[in-house]
């Protein structure tokens, strides 16, 4: 019995990288899902499961940057909602749609700027500031639409959200992959990305090394605001209608995907590869649950549990490793001093 337990712990300890674990998890989900229905593995299904959550995973990209930078933006889904609602309201007020879209993107930038100002320059905790703004921006969105639902946008706008643009891919998916490539290049290969990691590890070291810490944080929040607004507009285009609660509660999925991807909640470490794997896991999991006829609400509960697990598991993992180290040290102790 004891031996069996040791074997299990040993194999756990060997699984060193989180990404390896994610790959394993993904494979398991793939296998289980494909057993349920043959349609699961079809290209169209795989594209569909992306499309169903495409707006969230676009925001995951900027959220990854922020969490690596040891900050967070809980207000991103509210900015999505605000941009969508404002666009709809402007449209009903007779503003030409292209102009409305541009204004909404600008508002996204302003929201990010506002967040960043308090966090980078007034040194307030990003958790509290963006929590407050999560409420505030959502409130503003409701002010515009009250309890109405607004649709009936021009045909070209709806098609942009729904029709495949290149091959089988609609615009939002192309936007995601373009942003993904840009994000990988910036985070993993550029000087700016290096600064993001250094600040996440230790903002003081960065400041003492001449890094413009405040500017980096500011840029990240502005980017987060802009991308969130963009995602909100794409969401509006896909649904063809907007309500005050558009994108409400998306923070759960977004943060889950980032943290499950191995990004440390304390900042300083993580990779977009891991995050991409976790995006695939969450999407396929949701898809699988839909195939198994589980309701959307139940899926939300599972994602919530997954979020906790994604942080809890590495902690347990680390404790197991520490236990092993202690045993090694105990062995080494026999040497005389």
């Amino acid at each position: 019995m004891l031996q069996k337990r040791n074997l299990f712990l040993n194999s756990l300890a060997k699984l060193k990288s989180w990404e390896g674990f994610l790959l394993f998890l993904l494979a398991v989900i793939f296998i289980i899902n494909s057993q349920q229905t043959s349609a699961y593995l079809s290209v169209q299904n795989q594209i569909n499961l992306f499309i169903l959550s495409i707006e969230k995973i676009i925001v995951v990209l900027t959220m990854t940057f922020l969490i690596i930078n040891a900050e967070i933006d809980l207000s991103a889904p509210s900015i999505m909602g605000l941009a969508a609602c404002l666009m709809a309201w402007l449209y009903t007020q007779g503003v030409p749609l292209p102009l409305a879209l541009a204004i909404c993107l600008l508002v996204g930038v302003l929201c990010g700027l506002f967040n960043g100002l308090w966090i980078a320059y007034a040194n307030l905790s990003s958790l509290v500031v963006t929590l407050a703004m999560l409420i505030c921006y959502r409130g503003l969105a409701r002010v515009f639409l009250e309890d109405k639902s607004i649709g009936g946008f021009p045909e070209w706008f709806n098609l942009l959200g729904q029709k495949p643009l290149i091959g089988p891919f609609p615009l939002a998916m192309i936007v995601f992959f373009v942003l993904l490539v840009i994000a990988v290049v910036i985070l993993q290969y550029s000087g700016f990305g290096r600064h993001v990691f250094v600040i996440g590890n230790n903002a003081e070291v960065a400041r003492y090394s001449g890094v413009r810490v405040k500017r980096v944080k500011m840029l990240l929040y502005v980017a987060s605001g802009f991308v969130s607004a963009l995602a909100g507009l794409l969401f509006a285009a896909r649904l063809g209608a907007v309500r005050g609660d558009t994108a409400l509660g998306f923070e759960l999925d977004i943060i889950t995907m980032v943290l499950l991807g191995g990004v440390s909640i304390f900042g300083g470490s993580g990779s977009l590869f891991g995050v991409f794997l976790s995006i695939l896991i969450v999407l396929n999991l949701r898809n699988g649950m839909s195939l198994a006829n589980l309701t959307g609400h139940l899926q939300t509960g599972v994602i919530g549990a997954l979020l906790i697990f994604s942080v809890l598991a590495p902690n347990i993992f680390a404790q197991v490793r520490a236990a092993f180290r202690r045993r090694r040290v105990a062995a080494a102790r026999d040497e005389a001093c």
């Binding site: 909640i265 599972v302 919530g304 997954l306 979020l307 942080v311 902690n315």
Partner: peptide, 19 residues
């Protein structure tokens, strides 16, 4: 379990509502 409270309770917010 040493999971930050913000993470845990965003998670249980969803889980309890689902329940």
């Amino acid at each position: 379990g040493r999971v930050p409270s913000i993470i845990t309770t965003i998670g249980t917010l969803a889980v309890y509502r689902t329940l």
